[in-house]
Design a protein around this nucleic acid. Structure first.
Length: 464
DNA sequence: TGGGGTTAT
DNA sequence: ATAACCC
């Protein structure tokens, strides 16, 4: 495996002078602007073709071969050997095989292993700093600001080699060792390198990292040098980075819908968005979206790194060409539910809400899903920790009521997706008599709770 | 387009 | 419950 690449700072060598009389480096008394949201150090860590990496770890004999991970008729991701032969992410299996007949395909519809390893990565990163936000299964943001501050305090003035950037610097911008912001980001790059080393040594995974002063810029810069490399963005280069985007649709936070609405306004480049009238943009998109995305266009993003913690929901879905009978639907729902019950059992917490999601067939119209949810009856919740066969039948009954609430089974129907989701997860009953928890836990306190908990009535009631 | 996730309204 | 966003 290649080592993490290193190059020295572009400023004068051994540039730790001038020293303070006390022997401390000059920056020890530099004041970070109070409130400090303006000078954070954020890293974005992005695993290389994650599913393919996991499959190569599980099946080492596949290493070196062009490998694609298949879900239904799509190659959802592939390794770099396959990419060199023309396979792209989300490519049709037939197109991929045509481009690359030697392509090896593995089925990746069961996400269990990916999910497990994904959380191992997040946990590893949390050892560096607890403030880790997941984005999908293969990306994480970490706020390094505090960690960098600690390292700065411990930095000795007689170790000039300590101030060496790790990895690339965007645009080859020289580092100014007299600029405290540069120094802080440089230390962030060293921590990022340590994170990638730990991921490789402990989990066998490679990935990219981007270090910058906010999430947007960290994410954008992490993709500059692509497999298994890292890039640091200095503040003076942030305009170059955002203007390197060819279209606003490449801006994280501007999705499909907003892109279409912006294009209708004649906005297609980042600069178009920067210079467009704020007032008109607010009228068109609403003040919230307008202000947020216009700030993004300047590379400004004050959104915090929000620790993800344990998942807010568990879901399993299956898509298919056609499901048109209630019996068929019930069988599929049972499969989804069985997997979910295992997962929920492992997690330890208990879901208090269950949701059923469907997608109806519609020719050529963009996909839209419908859902119905309800509270899980408390007698079912209580049995959740242990044997899942007790809960299977009553849960299926609940789900089929939700199903019939959405789908008129007396009329012909055509579904292309079914999904079951457990959400509103609550920690196990550690509630003790006399505590707030006790009175807020419906299963424990039986007196005077119908009023307090009437919010549950927002969930639909089924009367059949 | 898969099989997931999140937050805001 | 849906709509938007992310991967």
């Amino acid at each position: 495996m290649e080592r993490v690449e290193a190059c020295t700072a572009g400023s004068s060598p051994g540039a730790l002078e001038p020293e303070e009389p006390g022997g401390l480096p000059w920056f020890h008394d530099q004041v970070v602007p109070a409130g400090s949201s303006s000078s954070r150090v954020i890293v974005h860590v992005d695993l290389d073709c994650f599913y393919a990496q996991v499959e190569m770890i599980s099946h080492p004999e596949l290493k070196g071969k062009p490998l694609g991970v298949q879900q239904k008729y799509l190659v959802v991701t592939c390794n770099y050997e396959a990419r060199e032969l023309g396979v792209k992410k989300l490519m049709n299996v037939r197109d991929a095989k045509e481009k690359c007949p030697q392509l090896v395909l593995v089925n990746g519809e069961d996400l269990t292993r990916y999910r497990e390893i994904s959380y191992k990565v997040t946990e590893l990163l949390e050892e560096f700093s607890p403030v880790v936000e997941r984005l999908g299964f293969d990306e994480n943001f970490v706020d390094l600001t505090e960690m960098v501050e600690k390292r700065l305090e411990q930095l000795q003035s007689d170790e000039p080699s300590a101030l060496t950037v790790s990895g690339h610097v965007y645009g080859n911008q020289p580092i100014n060792l007299h600029d405290i912001l540069h120094i802080r980001l440089l230390i962030g790059s060293q921590i990022a390198a340590e994170m990638r080393e730990a991921m490789y040594n402990q989990l066998g995974l490679t990935g990219c990292a981007g270090v910058a002063s906010n999430k947007l810029l960290a994410k954008l810069v992490s993709g500059i040098f692509k497999p298994n490399q890292q890039t640091l963005l200095l503040p003076e280069s942030s305009q170059d980075l955002i203007h390197s985007l060819n279209h606003i649709k490449e801006m994280p936070g501007i999705g499909y819908k907003t892109t279409k609405r912006l294009e209708a306004l004649g906005i297609s480049s980042v600069r178009d968005l920067q210079t467009f009238s704020s007032k008109i943009l607010e009228k068109e998109l609403g003040i919230s979206v307008a202000q947020r995305i216009q700030k993004l266009s300047f590379g400004e993003d004050n959104s915090p790194v929000t620790p993800s913690g344990p998942p807010q929901s568990f879901s399993e879905e299956d898509s298919f060409k056609k499901c048109s009978s209630e019996v068929e639907a019930k069988n599929k729902i049972e499969e989804l539910l069985a997997s979910l019950l295992n997962r929920v059992c492992q997690d330890g917490r208990k879901p208090h809400t269950i949701r059923l999601i469907i997608r109806r067939y519609s020719s050529e119209k963009h996909y839209s899903r419908e859902s119905r949810q309800c509270a899980i009856p408390s007698h079912i919740i209580q049995k959740l920790g242990i044997g899942n066969y007790d809960v299977m039948t009553p849960m299926v009954d609940v789900l089929m009521k939700l199903f019939r609430n959405m789908v008129n089974v007396k009329m012909p129907f055509h579904l292309t997706l079914l999904s079951v989701c457990f959400c509103n997860l609550k920690a196990l009953n550690t509630a003790k008599k006399g505590t707030i928890d006790y009175y807020l836990t419906p299963s424990l306190s039986t007196t005077s709770r119908s009023g307090k908990h009437s919010f549950k009535m927002k969930d639909i009631h089924m009367e059949d």
